[in-house]
Design a protein around this nucleic acid. Structure first.
Lengths: 160, 160
DNA sequence: CTCCCAAAGTTCCGAAAAAGAACCTTGACT
DNA sequence: AGTCAAGGTTCTTTTTCGGAACTTTGGGAG
């Protein structure tokens, strides 16, 4: 299966992976959430090659995750900002941070803490059910085919 | 920056990406959550080459995300199952499903629905604050350095 | 006017990884 | 002895990546 076939799969994970399933893309998005916006800043912070960076930014813009905004004229220069579609990726990033904190933390503990503005406290992101508000974990979720289901594989996140 | 340098970064996103920041790895994990366990089944469902599949499974086992469990003797055969560390990736998969459903759904609507066993309803995963239970979104989270912070870049998931 | 600088890319080349297909191993079954 | 199944491994070819140099647009210094 090739990269460009992914987005046509009847699977939301596959479709999402077709957008962000690349290490550089995820790290670029992490930096976007940290308010990094310029080509050179991404390059310096990430240690990515300019070639790959340009490619990924182009891809993210064409997918509507980032937009290219001019920040000066003569010479015209652009910066990259998250669109609403891009901001919606926050839960993905939060989930990645949480897992890394739990399972990959170094000797010093977690590198970063998350503070919830609404209550002012340091917190962990917790996933709950939109219907009853109860906790969601690996053992209390079932998947079933939805209206967009097709042939082969369904979607996913059920227990082992 | 090379792949193997990622896991030493003082960033939980980077460390997590060093484990799952690869499209095949994420799709393999999706299938694991759907109770797929055997080499041939992964191969058939994913359309991945055997070479890459063997490599990714080996990597996931060595990282403690999957474990190799014998399911028959003579000839000895193994299957792959999520460990507790692997099951903890569920929020990541849920976040990917949710984003795909919202932003990449095809004409037919969502391919799969999630059902919460505790309340029996179809639901969306929602991220809330572990402290006050309030909603978490792109605009009410601040990041600050934690005990494991180091030199360069902090972590991540703040608004644009 | 010429040189130098900055930001944001693009181009080029050798190295690494993925796709695709064939081959190998263990043991059961016929 | 021949066939089948599961789970890999070994090729060869095609893509992608890393690293470094080059380009473009214009400002500012001498």
């Amino acid at each position: 299966m090739r990269w460009d076939e992914l987005e046509t799969e009847a699977c939301s994970v596959a479709r999402t992976v077709s957008v962000i399933g690349d290490r550089w893309t995820i790290l670029i998005l992490r930096d976007c959430f940290m308010r990094v916006r310029r080509f050179e800043d991404f390059e310096k912070r990430l240690g990515i090659t300019r070639h790959v960076l340009a490619d990924r930014l182009r891809k993210l813009v064409s997918l509507g995750v980032l937009r290219r905004v001019p920040y000066q004229e003569r010479p015209r220069r652009y910066e990259y900002r998250l669109t609403p579609k891009g901001l919606d990726l926050q839960p993905v990033l939060l989930a990645l941070v949480r897992w890394g904190d739990t399972h990959m933390a170094g000797q010093g503990g977690r590198p970063v803490l998350l503070e919830h503005r609404d209550c002012g406290q340091v917190f962990d992101p917790v996933v709950v059910c939109s219907h009853c508000g109860g906790p969601v974990d690996a053992h209390n979720v079932r998947t079933r085919p939805g209206p967009g289901a097709r042939a082969s594989h369904a979607d996913a996140a059920q227990a082992g």
